[in-house]
Structure formats: C-alpha cells, structure tokens
Amino acid sequence: MSPAYALKRCGLIVYTLLVVSLIVFAITQVLPADAATMLLGENATAEALAAVRERLGLEAPVWLQYARWLGGVVQGDFGTSLRTGLPVAPLMMEALGRSLLLALLSILLMLAIAVPLGVIAAVRRGRAADLIVSVLSYVGVSLPEFVTATVFVLVLADWLQILPASGYVAPTQDPLRALQHLALPVLTVSVILVAHVSRMVRSELVDVLHSDYVRAARLKGMKPRTVLLRHGLRNALLPTITIVALDVGYLLGGVIVVEEIFAIPGIGRQLIVAIQARDLPAIQAGALIMAATYSVANFAADLAYAWLDKRIQYD
C-alpha cells in the first residue's frame, strides 16, 4: 500500500465523520421537543423554558450552534451534556471502553466456537453433523437477543444460580467479579454471532478443499489433518476478517438490547438515553464514536487483507 493511499483513506474517514455530524445535527433540529423541554418535562412553564434555553445556549441560530460545537471538537472539547451537566467526552469514552470489552471477549469466544463448528460442518458436509451445526447456528442468529439473553438469565442465574443475573463491575475494581458479570452477556452475544463465522468458514473450506493445491497436497501423501489445517483452514479463514470487522461495528452500539438487559452502560445505551433527552452534544459524540469505529475497523480489515494475501494491492 502506498502512503498516498493510506492518506486518502484517512481523509475519507474524516470526511465521513463530518458528514455524519452534519446529518445528526440536522435530524436533531427537526425532532419535536428540545433538551429544555425534556429537562423540565411536565414542569415546563414558558418562563422556565426560556430561562433554561438561555442557559443551555439553545436560543442561538442553528448554524451558530453547529459552528460552536465544531469549534470545540477541533480543540478536543466535545461539550457538556445538556442532561447531566457533565463533560460528554469522558462519559462516552468510558462507555466505549465497556462496549469494547464486551465486543472483544464476545468475538474471542465466538471464534473459539464458530471456527471448529465450521470445520466440522465442512468436513462432514451433507452428513448429520453438518445439519446439526447448521440448525444450531441458525437458531442462534435467528432468536431475538432479548429471548437468548432472558433464557440464559433464567437458566444460569435464576435456576442454577451459578452466575449473576445482571449488572456491570469494572475489571479495575474487581477482575473476578467483572468476569462473572460479563459471562452471560458475552455468551449471549457470541451465540448471536456464531452463525456469521461458522457458515463462512464452512463454505470457504468446502471450496478450498476442492481446489487443485489441496488435491496436490493429498496426492503428495500429506496427512489429512495437516492438509485440512495448514492448506485448507488457513486459506479459508481470510474472509472471516471481514465478518469480524463488521461485527466489531455491530457490537459497538448494535447490541443495545443486550446492554439494557445486563445493565452494561455501553455506547449503545448512552446514545439511546441521549436521544431520548435530546442531549445534542452526547448524541453527536456517540454517533461520531460509532461512525469512527466502523470506518477504522473497515480500514483495518483492508490492511489485514493486504498483509495476509500478498496478491491484494491497494493504490
């Protein structure tokens, strides 16, 4: 990859984020009710509304509000939450950290389950094992998150009482309890994701196992196991990178239901709460973080492709 290309991609990411911020800003202006209305709720009198709008700077023209916000962001200041009165950036970054932890552990567990399942299904293609793996992984991906999560809570927390039902403990505070509390959400999310990768591994591996170089390796007299792992799986795993990159994006914000049920104050939940409160600075920061994660994960996947497969070139 040429440096010019990398620069171009980075420029594109910045451009994307700018467009996202403009769209988010425009949409929040169109929504009925503003932060002052939501802050005062049913206690809003005209006088109180005016006073609060003045204090929050909502009386300024829209373009000026946007310019002020953008000016702050350029200097690294994402503003103060209209809902809590606290700076937005630290809260959002903490939320992102929690979501990232959940995402990372979920993806690791998912890969540990999905890759072997995909291999078994490919090797035993058309037989009972293949069918069982297909059905199970499709059940995982088709059940709504709240059903999967609730079933896990009922069985593992309510009946067997081996794991805490809900709640988040920071790993810095108590690593063991943190892992216990993360177990159920990680399990839930992995189950949802397994099908993405196991199906991909299966189909890729089936293709690869039919290729000439695998046939050549077999004819050479290599052990079937070596052929499968060294020549088959290694090549079949490449597209998995794309899926994982997409899943990272999905996990940061897309698993709001799981975050709600397990009381993990992740980025998705922060964003929903912010939208309900018409908390513009928080909405902007949340949307930007999510857009940035997508862009960066995607870029990283492209880089990984080129690094793993020398035939792929970007320019």
């Binding site: 609730t150 809570v153 805490p164 039902a165 809900s166 709640g167 049920i261 009381a263 939940r269």
Partner: peptide, 18 residues
Amino acid sequence: VVVYPDMTAQGSALISSD
C-alpha cells in the same frame, strides 16, 4: 444504588440476592 434498565433482569438480580 445500581442501575438496571431492564425490569426482568432487575427482578432476577433480587432473586439471586445481587
């Protein structure tokens, strides 16, 4: 004071004495 946005999950937390 612990925040549990999901009422069912909060009920489970009480049942398991969390």
